[in-house]
């Protein structure tokens, strides 16, 4: 049997109060369980997305670094580094949040994904097509990495929320509701006992009066 709530008076008033609390606790438990299930569903949805995103980011980065090695082989490491310094800044990332059941998850959007050779900013006269290829590959990789960052951060935030919701559900299910129900049962038993005691007392008094 679960523990009783300490310091409870076995009165009808207290019994009514406790019954209301049991109702509230059960309602809360039901709703929180629904929230937990929905969060888990979201988590698995994003997890599936993450698997694809990680694979894609790794593949894009592998291709990009392979293209970079070719560019360095054709132009030399120093020249490629010079071109990298000459290149215009990478495109901006717009960040905002969306809400999944109160969890603020980030949304990252690259403002422009691919640029033309002229837009990149390095000179065309002394660079090779391998460098253009490497830059294009890195632009693709950047988009994949940004998507991966969004998904992985969302997973972490959702996992945290699932953990706290689960803890609340378990506390209600295993501690609070059993304790309340045990206390309600105890008060009912005590009230019945008191009623029987009073009845017996009255019977005794009646018998004593009749005996006089």
């Amino acid at each position: 049997m679960a523990d009783l709530i300490e310091g409870v008076n076995p009165t009808r008033m207290e019994l009514l109060k406790l019954k209301t609390k049991v109702k509230l606790a059960k309602k809360g438990h039901r709703l929180l369980k629904e929230k937990r299930d929905a969060l888990i569903m979201e988590f698995f949805n994003i997890l599936e997305e993450a698997k694809g995103a990680r694979r894609q980011a790794e593949a894009r980065l592998r291709e990009a670094f392979a293209a970079l090695i070719l560019a360095q082989a054709s132009m030399g490491v120093v020249k490629v580094t010079q071109c990298a310094y000459a290149a215009k800044e990478t495109p901006g990332i717009e960040t905002y949040t969306r809400s999944i059941m109160g969890v603020r998850v980030p949304v990252l959007e690259l403002q422009e994904t691919s640029r033309s050779v002229i837009e990149r900013g390095y000179g065309l006269a002394d660079t090779t097509s391998q460098l253009d290829e490497a830059a294009a590959r890195f632009e693709e990789a950047l988009a994949a990495v940004v998507q991966l960052a969004e998904v992985e951060r969302s997973i972490k935030l959702l996992a945290k929320e699932i953990e706290s919701t689960k803890r609340r559900v378990n506390a209600l299910e295993n501690v609070l509701i059993p304790r309340l129900e045990a206390t309600v049962k105890y008060i009912k038993m005590r009230l019945d006992e008191m009623e029987r005691e009073n009845f017996f007392k009255l019977k005794r008094i009646k018998a004593m009066i009749e005996a006089r």
Binding site: L24, K27, G28, L31, K35
Partner: peptide
């Protein structure tokens, strides 16, 4: 119970 009531109220705050 105050905390529980608060959690229930905040379920739809999004």
């Amino acid at each position: 119970f105050r905390l529980l009531a608060k959690h229930i109220r905040s379920l739809n705050r999004h």
